[in-house]
Each structure stands twice: as structure tokens, then as C-alpha cells.
Simulated assay, not measured.
Amino acid sequence: MGNKIFDLEKNFSSFGAYHSNPINIAIHMLFSWPIFFTAILLLDYTPPLFNLPTSTFLFLEAMSTGTLAALLCWVCWIGSNFLATRLRFSLAWKIVLVAQVVGWTGLSIGHGVFEGRAPALLDNLAQGLIMGPYFVLFEALQKFFGYEPYPGFHASAQTMIEAEINEWREKKQK
């Protein structure tokens, strides 16, 4: 079956099991990328741990959704750098703080009120923080444009999502 880290169907299904409520999904679509963007904005004010050549850009992905996600990450990086060079830190950190507080509050409400389940990042921090924006993009492409990386992906992922939700509900009842 291959490495589960690179198993798109398994990872998307796992993420989807935490995001099955339509309102929670909409909240994530609204807040995930602004959280990502403002985190990068704040990082623009921190010194690098080590210097990389300015032409180095490490977002590489073979899939079309990965390429689009990399493009969005690049746009966030360029946009945050543009803002960072024009804003003073005293204003930038306030924008970041408001966006982060509103975004994380929205995501928490989505999980607590609408999903009835703790967020995925409590079980898998990397998936919740790093892959969250990607899976939100993937979900939007699927929902609004019918995108599937290969035929049958959505049906297979939906079956796996339902199985994970049922397993979680059974554990919760015990």
C-alpha cells in the first residue's frame, strides 16, 4: 500500500473525519488561509535561523492541487513580505493578533458547536497546522469544481471518512 504519510486518500479522509459539518467546513474555508497568511506576516519580522539564497523556494509538489497550494503559499509569502515592508511592526503585530484570535476562535466554534469534536491538531499537530490549509483548498476544489485527483477518489475518501467518524463515535460512547 505504500507510505501512509504520502497517502493522499488516507490523509484527506482523516482530516475529513474532523470536518464533516458543512458550517465547520465553511468556517475553515474562511479562516484557515488568513491564519496561515498572518503567521507568515509575523515571521517576516523574525530573523532567519540560517540564510538561504533568495531564489530558493521549497514548495514543490507533483499534483495539480499541490502546485496550486504552493502557488497560494507563495502568494501569501509575497503578500506578507509586501505588508511587512510597508507596515511598522507596531501595527503588523496587531493585525496578526486580531486575525489569529478571530481565526482560531472561529475554528474552535466550528469544532465545538457544529462538529462536536476536538480539532484534528489535538491528535496530529502536523496535520492540523501544516496540512490544514492544503486540505481546505482541496475540499473547496472538490466541492465547487468537482475536482478529483483520480476517478473514485471522492467516493473512496467519503467511505473512509464515515468509517473514521463511526469509530470515533463508538469510542466516545464507551
Results as ranks from 00 to 15, higher is better:
37 F>S: 03
127 Q>V: 03
115 E>S: 04
161 I>R: 03
140 A>C: 12
151 P>L: 04
141 L>Q: 07
167 E>T: 01
2 G>N: 11
89 F>N: 07
97 L>Q: 02
127 Q>G: 14
10 K>M: 11
170 E>G: 05
156 S>M: 08
141 L>N: 02
139 E>D: 15
154 H>M: 09
167 E>N: 04
100 Q>F: 10
158 Q>G: 03
53 P>T: 10
79 G>Y: 06
73 C>N: 11
42 L>F: 13
164 E>A: 12
78 I>M: 13
59 F>K: 08
133 P>I: 01
88 R>F: 11
42 L>K: 10
42 L>E: 09
25 I>G: 02
61 E>L: 04
134 Y>Q: 00
75 V>A: 14
70 A>K: 08
14 S>W: 10
131 M>P: 06
111 H>M: 08
121 L>Q: 10
67 T>I: 15
111 H>A: 08
85 T>I: 08
15 F>Q: 04
98 V>G: 05
95 I>F: 10
64 S>M: 13
23 I>D: 13
174 K>I: 04
82 F>G: 06
151 P>Y: 00
142 Q>R: 08
42 L>Q: 13
154 H>K: 14
97 L>A: 15
100 Q>I: 09
83 L>Q: 03
2 G>H: 11
39 A>C: 11
163 A>K: 08
163 A>G: 04
128 G>E: 06
52 L>C: 05
90 S>K: 15
94 K>F: 14
62 A>G: 09
75 V>Y: 09
36 F>E: 10
93 W>P: 02
165 I>G: 00
35 I>T: 02
98 V>H: 04
37 F>L: 06
77 W>C: 11
116 G>Q: 05
109 I>T: 04
71 L>W: 14
166 N>F: 05
78 I>L: 13
120 A>T: 11
69 A>K: 02
55 S>C: 06
156 S>N: 14
43 L>S: 11
43 L>M: 12
137 L>T: 02
28 H>F: 04
40 I>C: 01
162 E>R: 12
97 L>N: 04
19 H>A: 06
